[in-house]
Design a protein around this nucleic acid. Structure first.
Lengths: 213, 213
DNA sequence: GACATATAACTAAGTCTATTAGTTTCTCGG
DNA sequence: CCGAGAAACTAATAGACTTAGTTATATGTC
């Protein structure tokens, strides 16, 4: 039933486009020219097809964006998993952060589709959670308790996503190296991970009182 | 020539809508229903006007989005300036961070238009720089050198933007308080600001070597 | 090798959005 | 009262997404 059943057929030109090819072409447009330029008309033109024919492969623009988001989550997950192999603690955190930012730079279009998901989409959330699991495992090396780990996870995500977003938006000026700024930020984060463990020993830290308000 | 020349006229109902009113209505739609729901048709309907009449006030959708971005930058700038009054160092950083996040929560639609600007738009970049100046002044309290200050500025922006974006995207689960996570992250940042000053004394830190690669 | 089936292409058409052009209507200043 | 100008309107175009219905192609069976 899946389009991929046809992958054995060699003859390609006229009929026989797989959903994977359609999504890949869409991803390329999104990454090269931006999400705004990804239109069904443009995608069809690139595939030498008329727009309605796309509906044989994806159920419309919304579904296509969802596919792009899942593609991005899969590839990002792979990159992060690979980056974390054989590393632990600071080295692993830095490798993860670099891999994340690197992905966002290579794939600005589909990266943007990584977020925006409803709580109902189980297939997609599974891909997100795979990524979170990788981060969680790395953070486990710091011996934080459950609550602190979750704070650290959210913090790490905020940091790498925020930096990547701003970089993609060209929101940083030129005067100083952006790589250096990223390294600075990650250094601050890993330093924070270490002091967090000390804080965790004391049951009530100042920050917890503050957050209560 | 500006529409605001008409603000003296009391009679409002049929004719005489100002650009400010149009932009404000657009902002309300964007914040309540999301940027995707902001269409010229929807905006016109809300103002009890036909879509083409909008062109008497704004030069189209692109111009409207630019106006929304500038509105957001003005209001965000005001919020941040107010939040920083009478505070310094850690207190000021926390107040700034809270104000930023609070704005992003109150105005998710127009906040998203805060980024995306080309380097050519001088009027808009002036608004952005006003915000950066506020942050810069606060960071000055930590006695960092110019380069470290810039790293810190970029870091702070990444942190508050990243967290706010993820929160808006409902990317955080439920198990632990989001306020608490934000406070945790900001604590890590302010701790980093202090250790950065120590590092700055040494001319060549490990992180700088790393960033060179 | 011919045929039945399923797949994926197509054309045609409808809706919605943004936008332009041209016209009418309203308000205010003289 | 009247003329100028702003701001509403109607009409119309182009492009995007989508649905329905039709044609062509390839696969697999007899």
């Amino acid at each position: 039933m899946r389009s991929s059943d046809f992958s054995k057929r060699g003859g390609r030109p006229k009929v026989g486009l797989t959903r994977e090819e359609v999504v890949a072409a869409a991803a390329e447009i999104a990454d090269r020219k931006g999400m705004a330029a990804l239109t069904l008309a443009a995608l069809a033109a690139r595939l030498k097809i008329k727009p309605p024919s796309l509906f044989n492969h994806v159920a419309g623009m919304a579904a296509l964006r969802r596919e792009l988001g899942m593609l991005a989550l899969r590839e990002l997950g792979d990159s992060l998993s690979n980056a974390a192999i054989g590393k632990s603690r600071d080295d692993a955190v830095r490798a993860l952060a670099d891999a994340y930012r690197s992905f966002a730079r290579r794939h600005p279009g589909i990266y943007a589709e990584t977020l925006a998901a409803g709580p109902e989409d189980r297939e997609r959330n599974a891909l997100s959670e795979r990524i979170l699991d990788v981060c969680f495992k790395i953070l486990a090396g710091y011996g934080l308790d459950r609550r602190e780990s979750l704070h650290a996870l959210r913090a790490m995500r905020s940091i790498v996503h925020g930096f990547s977003s701003l970089e993609a938006a060209r929101a940083f000026g030129i005067p100083v190296s952006i790589d250096e700024s990223f390294a600075w930020l990650i250094d601050v984060f890993v330093a924070g991970l270490k002091s967090a463990r000390k804080d965790a020993a004391r049951p009530q830290t100042p920050r917890e009182k503050r957050a209560k308000k």
